[in-house]
Design a binder for these strands. Structure first.
Length: 953
RNA sequence: GCUCAGAUGGUGGAACUGGUAGACACGCAGGACUUAAAAUCCUGUUCCCGUUAAAGGAGUGCGGGUUCGAUUCCCGCUCUGAGUACCA
């Protein structure tokens, strides 16, 4: 039979599904290996040809590891909460669950036809109540925990309460809100419960507080920093403004240092680690308090000082002014009556400036004087206070000490406002710009004069600490993550309110299921969509008895409390989902201790780098938290991570001739001939084009108005123009895997996607060349068949040449897969099959091993041939990978390249047993070499055994 | 601006620790088979000069350097892509 990929692929996909061939065992004597893909959001558009790239790579790896004798966990699921389904629901009234279900069905069909070896019995969906029950449960653990800096880990809140009861707030070293109260043990015990709860909320790992959020009015929701790009929402591109709101937050900053340090222990791409480091943004410096000069108008001011953060506390004698962000809370109080007008104007001005303007315009210097002064703690000098929008309210303390001699922004500001610029290091050159040098000795710096950078910094910090005016401090750029979204299609937060205070619902009442609503929009009063749910209230007294506490059932008319109306953000479910795959159907725990101890962590994670500062950071955070509570065993969840590149679209263009009136005609000019004509380019469906040549008939029937189109051809063909851009429907450049599978089969598509180039490289999709892979598979099929296409393999002993081809590929694939170089293995498979075809090899001893080696890449055709070879159906996936034997590759001769001054001129066959001196002798006396030598004696002869001979003339 | 990644034929790419640059494939050209097409097979294909299948020369973004020998290492630059942005 000929290679009937359609029948073969359907048959084996069915077989794998029926026999659960890839079901992983939670208990095995084999070593474990966990291969994970970033699970997709099931969008309505389905998969395009770029999506499976990473899945194909991980599938090859997973299949390879099975052959190598590992117990492989390779699951798949759906990150199925998200905005598009909700937007669609708003437009159509269709429940997001319905849309999501339909989209998942499409995804599943598309994934299935590519022959992935997923263990579908473990499928997860973040929007399913069985799953989000545990997302809510983890939220509850976060609510019930605080971060103990002394232990450097999160601990149950009960431990903190016990401390309060014993010692009051003294001796607590926690990561918490800034304005926590100080109290004794007795005071604590005397607090009413509400006050205790309010105080505890300032310590919890997830907490409620008023924060400035990115509010997107068009989407009716709050966005995370990484969902905002240049002042616009990443999704939809709507304007985003700053707004103060009560919001759930996650105390990820507690883990800043551990998140940073952990990066050194994991095998991730360096650029990705760098992105996380920048995001965490650790800077080591000092905080300094500048006492406010007590001018008459400041008598009412509550605070004594202005605190700044600086990384160059050594330059403090060079401070000639202070700058506050316009939004700084002390600005109104500091402003003197005669400066009030100027300050108000400036604040109004900078408020008007959008985020975008502020970024675009970094050159113009602007600011205003408050009229007030502070005292420099090191020398008692009066320092004027300005406001300017180059200081950001959200970073550090929102105030900086300005050292114009060392900082360029301060320098420009000083020039503009005619403020003094004081050099503080002897070698500083501040003629035209600031000089931030750390070399040289200090001058104009009081007790630091004559010192070098290191001693000076140490000395000034000691001085400030003794005076109580400052201390060494580490500052992080990373902020706590806002955890609430004013949307419908997300996990409900398992919290209800008594007055203003949040309380967790009882664990036995999990999951809090998303209620039905009439519309998926915010209410008229601006409440989130969940506020629309009718009679959606929590009645703690009516909830069923809790067995673990042995409580009694109290039926009756309990008080009804309001649930939290915001839902969790998109990253909630994806921050722990890999644990659920370990034990996907457990209804007692998010995953059992036993399975977690077995699978531990993800050995290989493949996905896009766009998740660097979102999903991948939040996942590490939750993992560390779960580790602190002893719920999981590893500090880092993803041991090794590979970023697959992005597949860009490759658009094809036709060129429509424009007539004298400037109107488009129905004549199209081939790309190579457009120069003399006036044309306008037009996107054309890439699916009616092959090798950039337009199929004219298909073009005519593609769109009604082109049915009478005429063409100006070159060499009888219409050649299209090419442009690389994003893959999108409007550009007609979307290539659907379904079409390619129908035409060439999944095995061809899988191998072609790998053949395209290195996995980690981004590249435009180009279907040109897929034929080469298809031909290869047919050639492979033919090895097992005679001229009449009857299956025929011989049991003869293989020849040396055949064994050499086989063992070359056995070793090559091992090496390539281990270093994720899938493209080079595909080439090597082609070479092997070309060689065996030339050798007319149809020996079972060779072909059977070749089938095993290729099966990771092209599983369907290999399963079919495996059975034709007489093996049990379904055993191929767990067959042992053939053992490489170096003996078959041993050569006794090598064609040494002979080069003169590094230029290769010829090759000479020389025995590999010869030693360098003998080789030199042989080469120099060779008549051909003599010709090149032309009677001269070589200055030097370099011989590298088994590699090269270089003759220096 | 800063950080990171990259640049090799007409195209995708290969060359793993410095050792025959262009493997493998696409495309193109020519040929075989065929009434024709598809499929298949064969030959050629980095560029320049040139021919009897000669013999040369240049060549991995640009300019230097180290080395017997550099796509690979070092220095300086150009361009492309990604991330980030007044971070004190």
């Amino acid at each position: 039979m000929d290679y009937q990929f359609k029948d073969i692929e359907q048959k084996w996909q069915q077989f794998w599904a029926d026999h659960q061939t890839f079901k992983a065992d939670n208990n095995s004597a084999k070593p474990k290996y966990y291969v994970l893909d970033m699970f997709p959001y099931p969008s309505g558009a389905g998969l395009h040809v770029g999506h499976p790239l990473g899945y194909i790579a991980s599938d090859i790896f997973a299949r390879y590891k099975r052959l190598k004798g590992y117990n492989v966990l390779h699951p798949m699921g759906y990150d199925s909460f998200g905005l598009p389904a909700e937007q669609y629901a708003i437009q159509t009234g269709q429940h997001p669950a319905v849309t999501t279900e339909a989209n998942i069905a499409t995804y599943r069909r598309q994934l299935d036809q590519l022959g992935f070896s997923f263990d579908w019995s473990r499928e997860v969906r973040t929007s399913s109540p069985d799953f989000y029950k545990w997302t809510q449960w983890i939220f509850m653990q976060l609510f019930n925990s605080w971060y103990n800096k002394a232990a450097d880990k999160a601990e149950p809140i009960g431990k903190l309460v016990a401390h309060f009861e014993q010692n009051g707030s003294a001796g607590v070293d926690a990561v918490c809100d800034e304005e926590v109260a100080a109290f004794t043990a007795n005071e604590w015990k005397a607090f009413p419960n509400e006050e205790q709860q309010a105080e505890l909320l300032k310590y919890r790992m997830t907490y409620l507080r008023e924060s400035t959020v990115n509010w997107c009015a068009a989407l009716g929701t709050v966005l995370a920093n990484d969902e905002v790009k240049d002042g616009f929402s990443e999704r939809g591109g709507y304007p985003v403004e700053q707004k103060k709101m009560m919001q759930w937050s996650m105390r990820i900053t507690a883990y800043a240092e551990r998140l940073l340090q952990g990066l050194n222990t994991i095998d991730w791409p360096e650029p990705l680690k760098e992105m996380q480091r920048n995001w965490i943004g650790k800077s080591i410096g000092a905080s300094v308090k500048f006492p406010i000069e007590r001018a008459a108008h400041l008598s009412q001011l509550s605070t004594q000082d202005i605190e700044v953060f600086t990384t160059r506390v050594d330059t403090i004698f060079g401070v000639t002014f202070l700058v506050l962000a316009p939004e700084h809370e002390l600005v109104p109080a500091l402003t003197t009556p005669d400066q009030k007008a100027a300050i108000d104007t400036y604040i109004a001005q900078s408020k008007k400036k959008s985020e975008l303007d502020r970024m675009a315009d970094t050159k113009t210097v602007s600011g205003a004087f408050t009229g007030s002064y502070v005292i420099n703690p090191v020398n008692g000098e009066m320092v004027p206070i300005f406001i300017a929008d180059y200081v950001l309210a959200g970073y550090g303390t929102g105030a900086v000490m300005a050292v114009p001699s060392g900082d360029q922004r301060d320098y420009l500001f000083a020039k503009h406002f005619n403020l003094p610029i004081l050099p503080i290091i002897d070698i500083q050159n501040i003629e035209t710009e600031a000089d931030p040098t750390k070399e040289g000795k200090y001058i104009n710096s009081g007790f630091m004069n004559g010192l070098a950078y290191k001693e000076a910094t140490a000395k000034v910090i000691t001085f400030l600490e003794e005076k109580g005016a400052g201390k060494a401090k580490i500052n992080f750029r990373m902020r706590d993550a806002i955890f609430g979204r004013q949307r419908y299609w997300g996990e409900p937060v398992p919290v209800y309110f008594k007055g203003d205070l949040p309380y967790l619902i009882d664990e036995k009442d999990l999951p809090v299921v998303l209620p039905e609503v009439d519309k998926y929009l915010p209410t008229e009063s601006g409440e989130p969509p969940l506020a629309r749910a009718k009679d959606w209230k929590y009645r703690p007294d009516q909830s069923a008895p809790c067995k673990s506490r042995g409580g009694e059932s109290k039926q009756g008319a309990g008080v009804a409390y309001q649930y939290e109306h915001s839902t969790m953000p998109g990253w909630a479910g994806s921050s722990w989902y890999w644990y659920r795959y370990m034990d996907a159907h457990n209804d007692q725990e998010f995953a059992s201790r036993k399975t977690i101890e077995y699978w531990k962590d993800v050995d290989l994670y493949i996905g896009g780098s766009e998740h660097a500062t979102g999903h991948l950071l939040y996942s590490r955070f939750w993992n560390k938290f779960l580790k602190d509570l002893g719920l999981v065993v590893e500090e880092e969840p993803f041991k090794k991570l590979i970023n697959q590149g992005h597949i860009q679209g490759r658009s094809n263009l036709v060129y429509r001739l424009i007539d004298e009136m400037g109107r488009g005609t129905n004549t199209f000019v081939s790309h190579g001939l457009i120069k003399p004509y006036k044309t306008s380019p037009l996107h054309v469906d890439v699916n009616i084009i092959e090798n950039d040549i337009l199929d004219i008939n298909k073009f005519k029937s593609w769109r009604e108005d082109f049915k009478d189109a005429e063409f100006i051809l070159e060499n009888g063909k219409y050649i299209c123009g090419v442009e690389i851009e994003k893959m999108s429907k409007s550009k007609y450049n979307v290539v659907n895997p379904d079409d390619l599978v129908a035409r060439y089969g999944a095995d061809t598509l899988r191998m072609y996607e790998m053949f395209l180039g290195p996995l980690e490289q981004s590249k435009p999709w180009n279907t040109n060349g897929i034929e080469g892979v298809f031909k290869f598979l047919r050639k492979f099929w033919k090895l097992f068949h005679d001229e009449q296409l009857n299956f025929r393999v011989a049991d003869d002993a293989p020849t040396k040449a055949e064994l050499k081809s086989l063992h070359k590929i056995i070793r090559k694939v091992e090496e390539d897969v281990e270093r994720f170089s899938f493209n080079t293995s595909v080439s090597s498979f082609m070479i092997a099959v070309n060689e065996l075809t030339d050798l007319k090899c149809n020996k079972r001893a060779i072909l059977q091993d070749l089938v095993v080696v290729l099966s990771a890449y092209a599983p369907h055709i290999c399963e079919e041939l495996w059975v034709l070879l007489g093996n049990q159906p379904g055993t191929l996936s767990y067959a042992p990978y053939p053992k490489f034997n170096a003996e078959y590759l041993v050569e006794d001769e090598f064609a040494y390249p002979i080069s003169f001054n590094g230029k290769t001129k010829m090759n000479l066959n020389i025995s590999l047993t010869l030693e360098p001196s003998a080789i030199e002798n042989f080469v120099v006396n060779n008549t051909e070499v003599q010709k090149y030598l032309d009677g001269k004696t070589p200055k030097k002869v370099i011989v590298v055994k088994g590699r090269i001979v270089n003759i220096v003339l």
